[in-house]
């Protein structure tokens, strides 16, 4: 082992983490390929497993709220000292205090960020935060991860809007799911990363066929029968299109993205099914 081998390994690793395939890296270093290949496969497995470690969303919101409160106290301290404050900072602190207030009066700290719905006052804040995160994403894979998360959020909101019988919002959210997933599908064009030598008896799971929508109980009636029928059809088409595209992307995505895509497929499919079920119960009335 020499310093040069370590440099070559690191160079390949960096390229793989950015989405390049192991084969492409090995082509650059044919002499070192036999030594490098198993190490790079192990690295891909490590990266894949590490990316599956995700903090609990409720915990993330709780820490966020705590930091907002700390910022607010800090700000008050500065004000008392007579320091000058930027007006937009003031506005932000007030907005965040509002968020904290809402959290305290019943929405619940953990559910605050996920509970903002398209017709809510906090919703623009939620979208703005997502935009900032997308702008700050450093790599294509990070960007894809965020688009998947956003699509999942929109799909979750779609269910709630359907429950409230708001067809315009459901359609708007369907488009937004499409938009986010369209950006993820770019990943299909990325090079395939080799399967790893890690023991996996079960292998990637075959996805179950899309179940027929179950009848929903205890939800608000959803619009007129015809309108609901058309919406149900649009949702079904969107579900099929998006799930097929996501499954194709899953085969071709870099290893780091695979667990996230797999999870997204399950979540989005469930949300579509719930929405269709709610809309379907409206059209049958």
């Amino acid at each position: 082992m020499t310093g040069k081998t370590e440099d070559i390994f690191n160079n390949c690793l960096q390229r793989i983490l950015k989405g390049e395939s192991i084969e492409d890296c090995l082509k650059t270093y044919p002499e070192q390929a036999p030594e490098l290949e198993p190490l790079l496969k192990t690295s891909a497995a490590l990266a894949q497993r590490s990316s599956a470690i995700q903090p609990d969303p409720g915990f993330k919101v709780r820490v966020h709220s705590q930091l907002q409160a700390m910022l607010y106290d800090k700000q008050k301290e500065i004000e008392e000292r007579g320091a000058k404050i930027h007006f937009w900072y003031k506005g932000w602190v007030l907005a965040m205090t509002g968020v904290l207030g809402l959290l305290l009066i019943g929405v619940g700290t953990a559910g605050a960020s996920t509970s903002a719905l398209p017709d809510g006052t906090l919703y623009p804040l939620k979208l703005a935060t997502e935009q900032v995160r997308l702008t700050l994403a450093f790599s294509d894979v990070d960007k894809a991860k965020l688009h998947i998360q956003c699509a999942e959020h929109r799909a979750g909101e779609m269910v709630e809007m359907a429950r409230q019988g708001k067809s315009d919002k459901v359609l708007m959210l369907t488009e937004q799911v499409d938009n986010h997933l369209d950006k993820v599908h770019v990943m299909e064009e990325m090079p395939v990363v080799e399967e790893t030598p890690v023991p996996r008896e079960k292998g990637p799971k075959a996805l179950a066929p899309i179940p027929a929508p179950a009848p929903s109980v205890g939800v608000e009636a959803f619009g007129e029968g015809k309108e609901a029928g058309e919406l149900e059809k649009t949702l079904s088409q969107s579900r099929t299109r998006n799930l097929n595209a996501l499954r194709n992307a899953l085969d071709k995505a870099p290893e780091r993205l695979k667990p996230i895509l797999q999870q997204a497929i399950e979540n989005i499919e469930q949300d579509y099914n719930k929405t269709i079920s709610i809309v379907g119960s409206g059209s049958n009335q």
Binding site: H64, M96, L136
Partner: peptide, 30 residues
Amino acid sequence: IEKDIVSRAIKGDGEAFAQLYERYFDGIYR
């Protein structure tokens, strides 16, 4: 861009700190 956000966070801009929080939270946790 991040340098600019960090500069604002140093000066006490809460929004800037929130952006850094969003950017690094998952990595720190992992």
